[in-house]
Design a protein around this nucleic acid. Sequence first.
DNA 1: TTGTAAACAATAATGATTACTATTATTATA
DNA 2: TATAATAATAGTAATCATTATTGTTTACAA
Lengths: 130, 130
Amino acid sequence: MTKHSRQRECIKEFLATRYDHPTAEIIYLNVKEKFPNLSLGTVYRNLSLLTELGEIQKLSTGIGPDRFDGNIAPHYHVLCTKCGRVQDLEIESIDHIDTLASTQFDGKIEGHFTYFFGKCRDCLENKNNC
Amino acid sequence: MTKHSRQRECIKEFLATRYDHPTAEIIYLNVKEKFPNLSLGTVYRNLSLLTELGEIQKLSTGIGPDRFDGNIAPHYHVLCTKCGRVQDLEIESIDHIDTLASTQFDGKIEGHFTYFFGKCRDCLENKNNC
DNA sequence: TTGTAAACAATAATGATTACTATTATTATA
DNA sequence: TATAATAATAGTAATCATTATTGTTTACAA
C-alpha cells in the first residue's frame, strides 16, 4: 500500500510547472528549497514510482541523464544536437508505424518511442542563451 | 591520423558475425578470446571510434547498456519488453515523419530515432530460452 | 633502423542510479 | 486521541556503465 508523501506531492507539482523536461538532479535542487534535507534517492524513488503509476513520463533520450515530463498527454520530443535542449512537439498521430512494423515482425508490437533530433531556433540563430 | 589496430579490426569483424546487437561487455568477453589481455577501455574507445566513422551503429535503447550493430544499412529495431532481446526489423522508410515533425517545429529537424517495443515470438510462446 | 605519435593494458575516476539502514511520517485502528 | 504497523525518508554506501589517466607497446613513416 502506497502512503501519501509531501515530498512526492511536491515533486509532481514541480514537474507540472516545468516544460523543459528537467533531470532528477534539477528536480532535486528545486524541491530541496522546500524540503532542505531532501535526499536525491527520494527523488529517484518517487520519479520511478510516479512513472510506474503513469502520472509522469520518463524520457530516456540516450543523450545525457534521463529527463522527466509532467505532461502525460501523447506528444513527441525534439532534441537539439547543439545545446541538448528537449522541446515538445505536437504532431498528429504516427501510430500507423506500429501497424507497419507489425507486418514485418514475428511477434507482437505494442508501441514505439521516437525522438526527433535537429537544431532548435536559438542554436540556428547562434543565440548562446540555450 | 588513425593507425591500424588488430584489436579494432577484430571488434569490427566480431560485430559483422553477430545479429543480436551485443553490449560492450559481450564484445569484450568474445574478442578477449583472441587477445587475452584486451582491455575493456580499448573496446569502448574503438566502439566510439567505429561509430564516429560510421562503420558500426550504436543503439541507445534506454533499457540497459548501449548495444552495437555491425549492420549500418538503414533498418529499425524491436525491443522485447520481457526478455530484453533486440531484433532487426526491415520496414519501408518512415522518413515522412521527419517532414511531418518539421511542419510543427520551430527549428531544423535532421532525423529521428525510433525503437519499437513488444513481445518476441519466443516470449509469446513462453519459451524461456530467450 | 629509428623517431614519433597512435593505440594499448591497467587502473582510477566519474556520473547516474539503485540499495541499505536506522529514523520519521502516515494512516488504520483501539 | 493514543498507539501500533509499516511505508517513506535522509543519509550514505554500493553498483553499473562509461570515460579519463598513465606508462608501455605498436604501427608506420623518414
